[in-house]
Design a protein around this nucleic acid. Structure first.
Ligand SMILES: [Mn+2]
Ligand SMILES: [Mn+2]
Ligand SMILES: [Zn+2]
Ligand SMILES: [Zn+2]
Lengths: 145, 145
DNA sequence: ATTTTTCTTGCAATCAAGTTGCATTTGCAT
DNA sequence: ATGCAAATGCAACTTGATTGCAAGAAAAAT
């Protein structure tokens, strides 16, 4: 039995992931998952397309695939401060802030940073908060020089 | 002398604002400021255009104006969870989270909610954090019914 | 008050991220 | 092997936003 807290041992290979959520194992999906599994930070559709290279999967299919993955919680979708969506494999981590470098555009997961409590008591009654996110923007070490 | 903490008494009329930042007083800018001054929540370029009505200012001019205002810190720009920028008059408030209703798309400033401290010590050395934002998404009382 | 200079606008074209309709192809269960 | 549901490629389209450029309006200079 694997809980969200104990997924280290879970085999995360494309075939298993696709089987587990009842999706057909297509070449495009496998290639996309290969990239996302390899990577430890959220990337844009554009970067994903670049990494897929010239033997490309069609952009429409890539975006469609990412949406399917997101709906099935295979990936996280993070809205960037630059209004571009980024996607990362859902490894069952706790909620965490994200940092984006305004120069190179790379986003990083701050998985080690405790997600602070947000006091919503002061909001008017009647609101339903379904999702919250914290986004930091600045310069990464490389771009800071 | 007016500090950011003590702006209540500051006259916030379009003419003064424009003069203070050395911008020409044009009809479009005045109309835009009228709307932003009246309103207490961030709105999209689209909503701003709608409010300007048929005697419209050109969309290009509206977006250009918003960018100019943002650069001069006349307005805040908030990136929404829906990847659409929203703008609100800069009244010198403290930093605060924003709530967006996923149904009606209205964004609200949670000015009464204390902005939690984000522990960035656990980030690798060498990062420069210039900006941070907190975004809540859910349903507003009206859309919750 | 007129001229001159500088800034701003409108318009149309353009861009980028992402979506959609539809014919064709592919994975997979039988 | 066969058949059907699901997925893809392609092209067209949507939306938020930006840009080049000629024409127009403000402010400054005379
Ligand atoms: Mn993350
Ligand atoms: Mn605000
Ligand atoms: Zn960088
Ligand atoms: Zn609502």
């Amino acid at each position: 039995m694997d809980t969200a807290k104990n997924m280290e041992g879970v085999a995360i290979d494309p075939t298993t992931i696709l089987k587990n959520c009842g999706l057909k194992r297509t070449l495009g999906r496998v290639k996309i998952l290969d990239i996302l599994i390899e990577l430890d930070r959220p990337i844009t559709g554009k970067e994903l397309l670049n990494r897929l290279g010239t033997d490309a999967v069609d952009p429409a299919s890539v975006y469609r695939t990412l949406n399917v993955f997101f709906d099935l919680e295979v990936v996280h979708k993070i809205e960037g401060a630059d209004n571009i969506n980024r996607y990362a494999l859902n490894r069952g981590e706790d909620m965490h802030p994200h940092f984006t470098c305004r120069t190179c555009g790379k986003m990083e997961c701050l998985t080690m940073t405790t997600f602070p409590h947000i006091d919503i008591d002061s909001m008017e009654e009647g609101y339903l908060v379904e999702r919250e996110s914290i986004s930091l923007v600045g310069l990464c070490p490389r771009c800071r020089l």
